[in-house]
Amino acid sequence: MLLSLVVHTYSLRYWLPAAVMLGTAPAYLLPWSAWRLLSVLLPSRLYHTVDDRAYSFYQSMVLFFFENYTGVEIIVYGDDIPKKKENVVYLSNHQSTSDWIIADVLAIRQNALGHVRYVLKHGLKWLPLYGWYFSQHGGVYVKRSARFDENAMKKKLSSQAKVGTPMYLVIFPEGTRYNPEFKKVIDDSQTFAAKEGLAVLKHVLTPRMKASHVAIDAMRDHLDAVYDITVAYEGTLTADGQRRPAPSMPEFLCKECRRVHIYFKRLDMREIPPEPLFFRRWLHERFEIKDHLFQLTMAVDWLGFAYAAAIALGGFMGYKRKGSVMSLIAGLFFGSVSAYGAYRISFDPHDYWPSLFASGSLAVVMGMRFRNSGKLMPAGIMAGLSLLMVLRLLIY
């Protein structure tokens, strides 16, 4: 009975925001459809102005669930995000169904949420409600490889640039999500890179250049910059350098991702080579940087390391004052285990078992010693610190 209640309560963490977002979609799309029919007789720029404002309002509600309801911490590194709106192409690595919302997270910081448009794979155009809307909002559906219609994409983007449509075009050049469980996709990507004489990437897929090149080429005079974005969900890289799958949208809404690390790089249009061959090399080099950044995106568990240092210092002080070899050995042992645990938590907040073992053991041992001796130093202090550490690990 209790287990069933826990399971149902946990599922509500996802179904509540999902129901609100899906339930409001028809309410949003019905008046929008009326506006779209009316705007056929009006200038295209006017349609996009109203549409962008309405989309910004709707997406603000969606962002509330992803950023406020989940309590996720967004950590941005690299360049400062410009305060003013810009016409940009947004290039990012792709690993989760939540990736599209990260673009919104950054766009709203420039008050450009309504200008976000996407380059999406062709199959998504049949998505109920949203499929047709994304196209009318300015998005582009593309097919892969030989079926890619370069002229259609160039025509649509050029026409929007011509009438001055604000542009925050989101592209995931990898073409599909990186998932460490899809070994064949990763192997094929790495084999292709090696065959073409490109650097083999470990944490991202080899980028496809066609859609990115067409978009930038078609709107070069309209664009202010290219935003090169690297997204890393905390907990997807283990201490031994192995990748784990990024959280899905349900997992994200269920608050299973504590932090999202975003490396933001603004590239001036003069830095982007127009020639296809050089553009391909340039794009791959940008993804080489992303590959390297994945090894650096960890949040150091400073509290855990401080706790480990306190244990080791306590053991040393016991040895120095009373000549207790056992205090020294215990201090060094539990201090080392705690430091190792803090190191693992720095890569994955859920990997807390070494830290829990050390703090739990010390809470029991030092608690019993405090009860027998009644001395605050060192037994009482260390028992209290260890108990607080146990609570932090279990609650956090």
Rank of each mutant, 00 (worst) to 15 (best):
L2N: 03
V6M: 11
V6R: 10
T9M: 12
L12R: 00
W15K: 08
L16V: 15
A18L: 15
V20N: 06
M21L: 07
L22Q: 05
P26Y: 01
A27L: 15
L30V: 15
L30Y: 09
W32P: 12
R36N: 05
L37Q: 03
L46S: 08
D51T: 12
D52P: 09
A54C: 12
Y55G: 03
S56C: 02
Q59V: 11
L63H: 07
F64N: 05
E67A: 10
T70Y: 02
V72L: 07
E73F: 04
D79P: 12
D80Y: 15
I81R: 10
I81E: 02
K84Y: 02
N87W: 04
L91Y: 06
S92A: 12
S92W: 01
N93E: 13
N93S: 12
H94M: 10
Q95F: 14
I102S: 13
Q110L: 06
L113K: 10
V116D: 11
V119I: 08
L120M: 15
K125D: 08
K125T: 00
L127H: 14
Y130T: 06
H137N: 10
K143Q: 12
K155G: 11
S159C: 09
S159L: 09
Q160S: 09
A161C: 07
M167H: 03
L169D: 14
G175N: 07
P180L: 10
E181S: 07
K184W: 07
D187Q: 08
K195V: 04
R208K: 13
R208Y: 14
S212T: 14
D217I: 00
Y227M: 14
V231F: 13
R244G: 09
A246P: 13
P247F: 11
S248L: 04
P250Y: 00
I262S: 13
F264L: 13
K265L: 11
R266I: 00
P274S: 08
F279R: 00
L283K: 03
L283N: 05
H284M: 05
E288R: 04
E288Q: 00
K290H: 10
M298K: 01
W302M: 00
G304P: 09
A312N: 05
G314M: 05
M326W: 08
L328D: 12
F334I: 06
Y340K: 05
A342R: 11
F347N: 07
P354V: 03
L356S: 11
L362Y: 07
V365C: 06
F370I: 10
G374A: 04
G380A: 03
I381V: 04
M382R: 02
V390G: 05
L391P: 00
R392V: 00
Y396Q: 10
